[in-house]
Amino acid sequence: MADHSIKGKTVIIAGGAKNLGGLIARDLARHGAKAVAIHYNSAATRAAALQADLTTAGAVERLFADAIAAVGRPDIAINTTGKVLKKPLTEISEAEYDEMSAVNTKSAFFFLKEAGRHVNDNGKVLTLVTSLLGAFTPFYAAYAGTKAPIEHFVRAAAKEFGARGISVTAVGPGPMDTPFFYPAEGADAVAYHKTAAALSAFTKSGLTHIEDVVPFIRFLVSDGWWITGQTILINGGYTTK
């Protein structure tokens, strides 16, 4: 039977330098993983800090090649990269759309492709999306819209990689109390988001905290391997599908 523990496993995390990605890297390292993180290093584990703009297929391919050269083939591959744009659909320029598509959709597609080529058998692949995929809301057409295709990428990858024992999932956090959230939101919107979740009153800020999300990610890339091809929204009751 396959070993689904984290201890001794090699991990590659795209966007692992700070915020949620950084906490995931530290958390998995504490649980015994050998972590490979973008702009991240830990004295507790063997790690490599790798820099890349992941909006081209070649860059994602080089990222995996560099990571493998540094610490070996990954058992776990996690993609936390993304970009937010909150703007009326009628005001979004072609350049803005192209950038959102490259950062959110294209990079995720080719991350999954390279993960499928390089992750060891019985490995785990996880990609961050957004709880807005379960929302009926204006102004996020470019953000949620360029994250939405990842759901199908994940389903297809789960079917294609499943014969090798690899599980593939997506996680969609609610609005998170990080510097990634605030620049896109006005004061009224921030106030709304801080009260919108069913459990908002029981958190320090009313928002999702990265500490709320990490345990679920740890579970999905270890004992939760039987969950595959699905998108899990982690948001305290902010929205659902």
Rank of each mutant, 00 (worst) to 15 (best):
F64V: 08
A67Q: 07
A67D: 05
I68K: 15
A69I: 08
A70Q: 04
A70W: 03
V71R: 12
G72P: 08
P74F: 05
I76C: 13
A77L: 14
T80C: 14
K83S: 12
L85H: 06
L85R: 09
L85Q: 04
K86V: 09
K87Y: 12
L89H: 07
L89R: 11
T90R: 08
E91L: 05
E91K: 14
E91W: 02
E91C: 04
I92L: 15
S93T: 15
E94G: 06
A95G: 05
A95R: 03
E96L: 08
Y97K: 06
Y97Q: 07
D98S: 11
E99S: 13
M100E: 05
N104H: 01
T105K: 08
T105F: 04
A108W: 14
F109M: 14
F110A: 15
F111K: 02
K113Q: 12
E114A: 06
G116D: 00
H118S: 14
V119M: 05
N120W: 00
D121F: 01
N122W: 07
N122P: 02
L126C: 09
L128E: 02
V129E: 00
V129A: 01
T130W: 00
T130A: 00
T130I: 08
S131T: 01
L133R: 09
L133E: 00
G134K: 01
F136K: 13
